[in-house]
Amino acid sequence: MRTLPAGQYLPGHSLLHRLDARAKILCALILMTAVIGASSLWGYTLVLVALLIPILISRLPLRPTVAAVRGMGGFLLVILLMNALFFKGETVLASWGIIQLSHEGIKQGFRIVSNVVLILIIGNLLTMTTLPTQVATALESLIKPLKLIGVPTEEVAMIISVAIQFIPTLMEATELIKMAQIARGARFESKKLSERAVSFLPLVVPVFISAFRRAEELSLAMEARGYRNAKNRTRRQKEPLALHDYAALTFSVLICLIQFLLQR
């Protein structure tokens, strides 16, 4: 019953949903680079405005998209304060002992917080409009070049897509395991470190045992059906990128270029 906190796939028919997953991943990476490259208020405004376009196009409900950011609110506040108060800046506004509130510190704090939030939104846009299996297939295509240095890309892609598919099952099992042990009186607060380590065993052991048990069943089932390695599997023909994919890629590259020009 527990659901993944942020960025879970929401079905839809918007343009963003229909974009090729490979294009989306590349756009996401390019836009993230634009975020990291920003160093002025204009830089961040640029990315924020640029992001409004995909957000609107995707027709995603606002609440889940920003829910993750809200959830991190406390964490972000801490980062902001840590930087504002402890950064070694030059224009000091006030100081008490080792704490010094500096102009640079505040700026740095905002920088990091903005980076985190923007990257989170980009990541969410990707995962909320793309099925995990689509992401996995797209990644498999994108990492094909690594074959040149001997990486078995098909196997890697298979492993990752199996991992993604296991996640809901593992979550459910972990919930039940926690409940079973709490019902038996398991407690996780103990003063002594050695006891603390051991107190996690009732949770950790069943989680790994049931996970590996499922893994064993799956691998036996795969072998029984003649699976030997990922290379020889038949695959759907990869559709070529469409016009809207190229448009999205061009848009992202443009934003990134403008960003770097802004830095000069």
């Binding site: 099992a173 039940l176 395991i177 409940m179 079973a180 042990q181 709490i182 019902a183 038996r184 009186g185 065993l201 009732p202 950790v204 052991v205 069943p206 045992i209 049931s210 048990r213």
Partner: peptide
């Protein structure tokens, strides 16, 4: 916790020692 005992369907969810 003392009053109610629960046994879930999969015993492997419980055994660890």
């Amino acid at each position: 916790r003392q009053t109610v005992g629960v046994v879930f369907q999969d015993p492997e969810y419980q055994l660890f020692a």
